[in-house]
């Protein structure tokens, strides 16, 4: 459909080739419109008294919009200019730990010129959510994020292989810049750059202990639920859910960024 599409990404614009024939709807705000569709969740959580059929059912995801790429330092800078309370000198301790915007030498200064196109990292859930809200958006739910990654089954092996490669790469001083190849939806850089916050990351708090398949014995959690997984050989998926489970909303990390989501266009 598009041979090349100009994507306005915050303060910069870049031209990125998309595979011919891809039905990608790219809005001027750098977002991708994802169609409604069915999705098989990796993590199958169900109430203990629910039927097995419920546990294995595919989930219907409504149409939504998602940032084509993770939010960059340049974009986050624009937000900080407009919302001074989220600058590193002013952020409240409730909202972020001590490593908030660690790579930024000062309030309005991303690490260096090259860092402008890198995903912003060391942002807390509160800061990420505030950024999205300022754009009239939200963080994607975990299901929306995973649905975008699942890409209707396209490129499954590529995602796994790229994830494992990324796990094995020693940590660099900076994450790579955004602008990787788009998946079938037109979404980029879902793996290989940074982990990403989701709106309801805390909903999966228990799953870091992967061997606890029966939640009923966990006195820390109200309500009985059994968690199974769709594919026990999908190590990168385990890792994503473990990462979410290890987080708290004020945490920041060198490899943790985010992108925003919104309702259907």
């Amino acid at each position: 459909m598009h041979g090349a599409v100009a994507i306005a990404v915050g303060t910069l614009a870049l031209v990125a080739p998309l595979a011919v024939g891809l039905a990608v709807e790219l809005n001027s705000d750098g977002m991708i419109a994802l169609p409604a569709g069915l999705y098989m969740p990796f993590l199958r959580v169900r109430a203990l008294n629910a039927s097995n059929a419920d546990a294995t059912a595919a989930r219907r995801i409504d149409a939504f919009r998602l940032d084509a790429e993770p939010v960059t330092n340049a974009q986050f800078l624009d937000f900080l200019i407009a919302h001074p309370q989220w600058r590193k000198s002013r952020i409240r301790a409730l909202f972020a730990d001590d490593r908030y915007l660690k790579r930024w030498p000062s309030d309005l200064e991303p690490a260096d010129a090259g860092a402008r196109d890198e995903p912003v990292t060391n942002v807390s859930w509160f800061a990420a959510e505030a950024y999205c809200k300022a754009r009239g958006l939200r963080l994607p739910t975990t299901e929306q994020w995973e649905y975008a990654l699942a890409d209707e089954g396209r490129g499954r092996e590529t995602v796994r292989a790229r994830s494992l490669e990324w796990f094995a790469e020693p940590n660099g001083a900076h994450p790579p810049s955004v602008g990787g190849p788009p998946n079938g939806f037109g979404v980029r850089d879902m793996v290989g750059l940074v982990w990403e916050w989701t709106l309801d990351f805390a909903a999966y708090a228990r799953t870091g202990e992967s061997r606890d398949s029966d939640g009923k014995d966990s006195a820390n959690f109200c309500g009985g639920a059994a968690a199974g997984v769709a594919d026990a050989t999908d190590y990168p998926a385990f890792m994503r859910y473990s990462m979410r489970a290890s987080l708290k909303a004020d945490y920041t990390a060198d490899n943790l960024g985010f992108r925003c989501a919104g309702g259907a266009p």
Binding site: R99, E209, D217, S218, L256
Partner: peptide
Amino acid sequence: MPHNIDLHAVNGPGGGAAASLTAPG
């Protein structure tokens, strides 16, 4: 990566794993 620890010397659920899932940093 997130990590935790299960010590087989512990008497308790997960051997400590349930109490020690830890994000980077």
